[in-house]
Measured scan of single mutants.
Amino acid sequence: QNEKLANELKSLLDELNVNELATGSLNTYYKRTIKISGQKAMYALKSKDFKKMSEAKYQLQKIYNEIDEA
């Protein structure tokens, strides 16, 4: 289960640069939040902690959705 979550989180991290570029014309909230979420996700992957990875995955998905809707 950890392996599956780690792969999903890696996949979301692969999209980080594209989504970060998409924040160029948006409010600074999005820029700041996506950077923080990305850092948390990288830390969670290194720690291999299921709870941290779950939270990081949720945060990344949430900010990606917010950027898409903005």
Rank of each mutant, 00 (worst) to 15 (best):
Ile36Met: 09
Glu3Met: 10
Asp68Val: 14
Lys62Leu: 07
Gln1Glu: 13
Glu15Phe: 13
Asn65His: 12
Ala6Lys: 05
Asn27Ser: 14
Leu12Val: 02
Arg32Trp: 12
Tyr43Asn: 13
Phe50Val: 07
Ile67Tyr: 03
Arg32Glu: 12
Asp14Phe: 08
Leu45Gly: 01
Arg32Asn: 09
Lys57Ala: 08
Asn19Ala: 10
Leu26Val: 03
Asn65Cys: 13
Leu12Arg: 00
Thr23Gln: 06
Val18Gln: 12
Leu60Gly: 01
Gln59Trp: 15
Asn17Met: 14
Phe50Ala: 07
Ser37Trp: 15
Asn19Ile: 15
Ser25Trp: 08
Gly38Thr: 12
Ser47Lys: 05
Tyr43Pro: 01
Ser54Asp: 05
Lys40Ile: 11
Arg32Asp: 07
Thr33Met: 15
Lys35Phe: 11
Glu8Leu: 05
Leu26Ser: 03
Glu8Arg: 03
Tyr58Thr: 09
Lys51Glu: 11
Thr33Pro: 01
Leu21Val: 08
Glu66His: 05
Glu66Gly: 03
Leu60Lys: 00
Ile63Glu: 00
Lys48Cys: 10
Asn17Gly: 12
Lys51Ile: 10
Ala56Arg: 00
Asn19Tyr: 15
Lys46Gly: 05
Ala6Thr: 06
Gln59Glu: 12
Asn2Tyr: 14
Glu20Gln: 10
Leu9Lys: 00
Asn17Lys: 14
Tyr30Met: 07
Asp14Gly: 08
Asp68Cys: 15
Tyr43Val: 14
Ser47Gly: 04
Asn7Gly: 09
Ile63Arg: 01
Ala70Lys: 07
Thr28Ser: 14
Tyr30Val: 03
Tyr43Ser: 13
Leu16His: 02
Gly38Glu: 06
Glu66Pro: 01
Ser25Ala: 11
Tyr30Thr: 03
Asn7Arg: 14
Lys35Arg: 11
Asn27Leu: 05
Gln1Gly: 07
Lys31Leu: 08
Gln1Trp: 10
Leu9Thr: 00
Leu26Ala: 03
Ile36Phe: 07
Ile34Tyr: 02
Asn2His: 13
Asp14Thr: 08
Gln1Ser: 09
Lys52Pro: 01
Ser47Phe: 06
Leu9Asp: 00
Leu13Pro: 00
Glu3His: 06
Tyr30Arg: 03
Leu12Gln: 01
Tyr58Glu: 13
Asp14Leu: 11
Ala22Leu: 14
Leu26Glu: 04
Gln39Asp: 07
Gln1Met: 12
Lys52Val: 05
Lys51Val: 10
Ser54Thr: 13
Leu5Val: 05
Gln1Ile: 13
Ile34Gly: 01
Met53Thr: 00
Leu21Ala: 10
Tyr43Gly: 07
Tyr43Asp: 15
Ser47Ala: 07
Thr28Tyr: 13
Leu16Ala: 02
Gln59Phe: 14
Ile36Lys: 07
Asp14Asn: 09
Lys4Cys: 08
Glu3Val: 07
Leu13Glu: 00
Lys31Cys: 09
Lys10Ser: 06
Tyr58Trp: 10
Tyr43Leu: 14
Thr23Ala: 15
Asn17Ile: 13
Asn65Arg: 15
Ser37Glu: 12
Glu8Thr: 04
Lys51His: 09
Ile63Met: 03
Asp49Pro: 01
Ala6Glu: 10
Ala56Val: 03
Asp68Glu: 13
Lys48Gln: 09
Tyr30Glu: 02
Glu55Thr: 06
Thr23Ile: 07
Glu66Leu: 11
Asp68Ala: 15
Asn2Thr: 14
Asn2Lys: 12
Ala6Arg: 08
Leu5Phe: 02
Lys31Met: 07
Leu9Ile: 06
Leu13Tyr: 03
Gln61Glu: 11
Lys40Leu: 13
Leu45Tyr: 07
Ile36His: 06
Asn2Phe: 15
Leu13Ala: 00
Asp14Cys: 12
Glu20Asn: 08
Ala41Gln: 00
Met53Ser: 01
Lys40Val: 07
Ile34Gln: 00
Tyr43Cys: 13
Ile34Glu: 01
Leu45Asn: 00
Tyr43Phe: 11
Arg32Lys: 11
Ala70Asp: 04
Ile67Glu: 01
Ala41Trp: 03
Leu21Pro: 04
Ser47Met: 11
Glu15Ser: 11
Gly38Gln: 11
Ala6Leu: 08
Ala70Phe: 07
Ala44Thr: 00
Leu26Arg: 04
Gly38Ala: 14
Lys35Met: 10
Lys31Ile: 08
Tyr43Ala: 15
Ser25Glu: 08
Tyr29Trp: 08
Ser47Asn: 06
Gln1His: 09
Gln39His: 06
Thr28Val: 12
Met53Ile: 04
Arg32Phe: 10
Tyr29Cys: 11
Gln61Gly: 03
Gln39Val: 09
Leu12Ile: 03
Asn27Tyr: 05
Tyr64Val: 06
Glu66Cys: 11
Lys4His: 07
Ala70Gln: 07
Ala70Ser: 05
Glu69Met: 13
Leu26His: 04
Glu15Asn: 10
Thr28Leu: 11
Lys40Thr: 05
Lys40Asn: 10
Met53Asp: 00
Lys4Asp: 09
Lys51Thr: 10
Glu55Gln: 09
Thr28Pro: 14
Glu69Lys: 13
Glu15Lys: 14
Leu9Asn: 00
Glu66Lys: 06
Tyr29Asp: 03
Glu15Thr: 07
Thr28Lys: 11
Tyr64Asp: 00
Asn17Glu: 13
Met53Pro: 01
Asp14Trp: 08
Leu12Thr: 00
Lys35Thr: 07
Thr28Ala: 14
Ile67Arg: 02
Met42Gln: 09
Asp68Asn: 14
Met42Ser: 04
Ile67His: 02
Lys52Asn: 05
Gln59Thr: 05
Asn65Tyr: 10
Ser11Leu: 13
Gly24Asn: 13
Ala70Ile: 07
Tyr64Ser: 04
Ile36Ala: 09
Val18Cys: 13
Lys62Ile: 05
Lys4Phe: 07
Glu66Met: 12
Lys10Val: 05
Gly24Asp: 12
Leu26Lys: 04
Phe50Cys: 06
Ile63Pro: 00
Lys57Leu: 15
Ile36Leu: 10
Ile34Arg: 02
Leu12Asn: 00
Lys51Met: 10
Ser47Tyr: 06
Met42Val: 09
Tyr30His: 03
Lys31Arg: 10
Val18Arg: 14
Lys52Tyr: 05
Ser11Gln: 12
Ala44Gln: 01
Met42Phe: 09
Asn27Val: 05
Met53Phe: 02
Asp49Gly: 02
Ala44Asn: 00
Asp49Ser: 07
Thr33Phe: 12
Gly38Arg: 14
Asn19Gln: 12
Asp68Lys: 15
Glu8Ser: 05
Ala6Ile: 11
Glu8Cys: 15
Thr23Asp: 05
Lys62Ser: 05
Lys62Cys: 10
Leu21Phe: 07
Lys40Ala: 09
Glu69Cys: 11
Glu69Val: 11
Tyr30Cys: 08
Leu21Glu: 08
Lys10Phe: 04
Ala56Trp: 03
Gly38Tyr: 14
Lys62Trp: 06
Lys46Ile: 12
Arg32Tyr: 13
Glu8Gln: 07
Leu12Cys: 04
Lys52Ser: 08
Met53Glu: 00
Leu21His: 07
Gln61Cys: 09
Gly24Tyr: 11
Ala22Arg: 15
Glu69Trp: 12
Ala44Asp: 00
Asn19Arg: 15
Leu60His: 00
Ser47Glu: 06
Lys62Ala: 06
Leu26Met: 08
Asn17His: 14
Tyr29Met: 04
Asp68Leu: 15
Ser25Tyr: 09
Glu3Cys: 11
Tyr58Gly: 06
Asn2Asp: 07
Asp49Lys: 03
Gln1Phe: 09
Arg32His: 11
Leu60Ser: 00
Ser54Leu: 15
Glu8Lys: 04
Ser11Tyr: 07
Lys57Pro: 00
Gln1Lys: 09
Ala41Asn: 01
Tyr29Ile: 04
Ile67Ser: 02
Asn2Leu: 15
Ile36Arg: 09
Arg32Gln: 10
Asn17Gln: 13
Leu60Thr: 01
Glu20Ala: 13
